[in-house]
Amino acid sequence: MRVVALGGAGATGAVAARVAANLPRVREVVIADRAGGARVDITDEKSLRDLLKDADVVLNTVGPFYRYGTTVLRAAIDTGTHYLDICDDWQPTRDLLALDGSARAAGVRAVVGMGASPGASNLLAVLAARELTDVDEVHTAWPADGDGDPAATAAVVHWMLQISGRIAVVERGAITERPPLRPLELTLPSGATGTAHTVGHPEPLTFHTTFRPRAATTLMVAPAATIAYLDVLRHDIDTGRLTPDTAARALVRPTPGRVLRSLTRHPAGPGTLPRFFALATGGGHAVEARLDHPTLLDDMAEATGLPLALALAQLDSVPPGVHAPEAAIDPDRFFHDLARHHPDAVPTIHRGRR
Rank of each mutant, 00 (worst) to 15 (best):
T153H: 07
R172Y: 07
V135G: 00
L188S: 01
T153K: 03
L181F: 10
L161R: 15
A141H: 14
D136P: 03
L161T: 12
A141E: 08
G173R: 10
A174G: 09
T140H: 05
E203D: 14
L188V: 08
V199N: 00
S164K: 01
H158S: 13
V156C: 01
P150L: 03
G146N: 01
V157F: 02
P183F: 07
G191S: 09
P189N: 07
T140A: 08
A196W: 06
V170K: 09
I175M: 10
P143R: 14
R166H: 04
A144W: 09
R166P: 01
I175G: 00
A152K: 03
A144Q: 07
G165I: 01
T193R: 11
G191R: 05
D134I: 15
T198P: 05
P204F: 00
L181Q: 07
S164F: 02
I163Y: 02
T176M: 03
Q162H: 08
V199W: 03
T195C: 11
V135D: 05
P143Y: 13
A174N: 10
D136A: 10
D145Y: 00
D136T: 14
V170I: 11
W142K: 14
D134G: 10
H158V: 08
E171L: 12
L188W: 07
A196C: 06
P150V: 01
H201V: 11
D149L: 04
T195F: 04
V156W: 02
E185I: 06
G146S: 01
P204T: 08
F207G: 12
R178K: 10
A174C: 15
D147K: 08
G173H: 12
W142R: 15
E177S: 04
H139T: 09
L186V: 08
G146H: 02
A141W: 09
L184W: 12
F207T: 15
L181S: 13
P143L: 09
T198Y: 12
E185N: 07
L205C: 04
P179K: 08
P180N: 05
I163N: 02
D145P: 00
H139C: 13
V199Y: 06
E137L: 06
A174I: 11
H158I: 04
G165Q: 02
S190A: 04
I163V: 15
W159M: 14
E171F: 03
F207S: 10
S164W: 01
V169Y: 10
A151V: 00
A144S: 11
V138S: 11
A144T: 10
T187F: 10
H158T: 15
T198R: 12
A152W: 00
E171I: 13
E203Q: 04
E137R: 12
I175P: 01
M160V: 02
R182G: 09
V156M: 06
H158A: 14
G173Y: 13
D149Y: 03
I167K: 02
M160Y: 01
Q162E: 14
T176I: 13
H197E: 14
V138L: 10
D149Q: 03
W142N: 15
S164V: 02
R166Y: 04
A144K: 08
V170C: 11
E171D: 09
G194C: 09
H139F: 14
G191Y: 04
T140N: 00
